[in-house]
Design a binder for these strands. Structure first.
Lengths: 103, 103
DNA sequence: ACCTCATATTGATGATTTTCTATATTATAG
DNA sequence: CTATAATATAGAAAATCATCAATATGAGGT
């Protein structure tokens, strides 16, 4: 795996905004087009577009263009990477725990 | 579980900053005191303190006070909650996928 | 009680992020 | 080819965040 700190922040930035979390909830029902998301969310069209870009950049969401429409869905691969990333980053090696002060 | 969108953003905000990601890497070796983290990170003491607060608020890290020193470690419980949260939020129900446009 | 050391809080500043309006791009329909 | 509809981009304003210097708190040691 070995993602950089920077790459990790890009992944989890997807989940740092309430509107984006809400978009995930909408995508739980399956693929949704931008116009559908726009109806459900209380956002302007450019703002939604901005959030969808961040979500796609994170890899957790993928977009599919079909004619004029953009269809978005949760990326299973992206989710697996994020889960693995979170697990790796928080896995503690129970070895020599020598810190500087007090014991 | 049923965390609010707001609560979810608080959890994942922990991982939205490169310095905080680096702090996780330092905590992978086990519990560390603030002074140790301060030596390793290129940050002022107040800035580190600020990041540790965000990490503790997220639940992914816990602090333990011992005399003058603060010892920080990864919270296994917090990690499990975050993992479950991420899984839940990105779990897609493969049912009626009726979106508005195109098919 | 005072001094010192480790950490937290305050307050200010610059950087980043969210949001909007206006405009550009791209695709289909006529 | 022009008109329309869906989405993206540019640019600006407001909000949030990261950062530091200065100061406060709190815990031992003398």
């Amino acid at each position: 795996m070995e993602l950089s700190n920077k790459q990790i922040t890009v992944i989890f930035k997807a989940l740092c905004d309430e509107n984006r979390v809400q978009i995930f909830r909408l995508l739980q029902g399956g693929e949704r087009c931008a116009c559908h998301l726009l109806e459900e969310m209380n956002l302007s069209q450019p703002t939604l577009s901005h959030h969808m870009k961040i979500l796609c950049d994170s890899g957790l969401v993928v977009g599919r263009k079909e004619g004029k429409w953009m269809h978005y869905s949760v990326s299973e691969q992206g989710v697996q990477l994020a889960l693995e990333c979170l697990r790796e980053l928080t896995a503690v090696s129970e070895s020599g725990n020598d810190c500087c002060c007090g014991e």
